[in-house]
């Protein structure tokens, strides 16, 4: 029997406090319910976890497990049905609209489909978050494009770029406002293995150079194992475990996604 370091599993009496560790994101009993054609869908069920500052944290689960929903809730893209999310100690529901906006603007996000505006150049796309915040900093845009190695494509349009290049531009865009947290929603799943690896290296470099906390959502266990410090395993909206990711090789495979994840990651 393998010895597994499981920090906590979901439950009503879950203690999300980890003494001595500075928490960046606290998720307390978060539930999310959708209505689709009058049918209620429970996307998340009382999920609690804590993501530490400067961590490369993975959220893993099969399709429909609620991992992307959780990411959207952290970024305020969607409203909670129950529970609370604290960003750097502040609850998003206790603060006024202006403060909430300011708080969410400290979170960067990259998407599976890159979400670049097709009619804007690379320069304009990267400068978009600054424009939304009423700032103008062409130098910062150039710096971020140099950071992701895309400065020579500054005047190109997204349709002139490859998938990997588009994701690099999306990363540069997310970094222009110097976010303390970077949420990554399956950023490599639309890319081939080589480009996916390059994007992951870039995310690691971001974490190391800018001190950004990375929250990385994926269904690919290999990526979580290779890049993350810890990972949360979700299944059907429930948090099953948060594990310290070990770099050991695993040969065994089990039938359920949870078993496979536990075996593989720990």
């Amino acid at each position: 029997m393998k010895s597994i370091n499981i920090e906590h599993v979901t439950g009503d009496a879950l203690n999300v406090k980890s003494p001595g560790v500075i928490s960046m994101i606290k998720i307390k009993g978060v539930s999310k319910e959708f209505k689709q054609k009058k049918i209620k869908i429970q996307a998340l069920r009382a999920v609690s976890m804590e993501i530490r500052r400067l961590e490369f944290f993975g959220i893993v689960g099969a399709s429909g497990s609620g991992k992307s929903t959780l990411l959207k809730l952290i970024n305020g893209l969607d409203d909670l049905t129950a529970g609370e999310i604290l960003i750097d100690g502040d609850s998003l529901k206790d603060i006024n609209k202006k403060e909430r906006r300011r708080k969410i603007q400290t979170i960067g996000m990259i998407f599976q489909q890159f979400n670049l505006l097709q009619n804007l150049t690379v320069r304009q796309n990267v400068g978009l978050p600054l424009k939304v915040q009423g700032k103008k900093n062409p130098q910062k845009v150039k710096e971020m494009l140099a950071f992701v190695g895309m400065e020579e494509h500054i005047n190109n349009y997204p349709s002139q770029l490859s998938g990997g290049q588009k994701q690099r531009v999306a990363i540069a865009r997310a970094l222009t406002t110097a976010p303390s947290i970077l949420l990554c929603d399956e950023p490599t799943s639309a890319l081939d293995e080589h480009n996916g690896h390059e994007v992951m290296k870039l995310l690691k470099k971001t974490q190391e150079e800018f001190g950004t906390t990375i929250v990385f959502v994926s269904h690919e266990l290999e990526l979580i194992k290779q890049w993350c410090n810890r990972a949360a395993i979700l299944e059907e909206g429930r948090l099953l475990a948060i594990v310290d990711v070990s770099k050991n090789q695993v040969v065994n495979s089990e039938t359920s996604y949870y078993q496979k994840a536990m075996d593989y990651l720990t």
Binding site: I104, Q105, F111, N115, L117
Partner: peptide, 8 residues
């Protein structure tokens, strides 16, 4: 989705 994530 992007505009919302940027709090536009």
């Amino acid at each position: 989705e992007l505009s919302k994530s940027l709090c536009a």
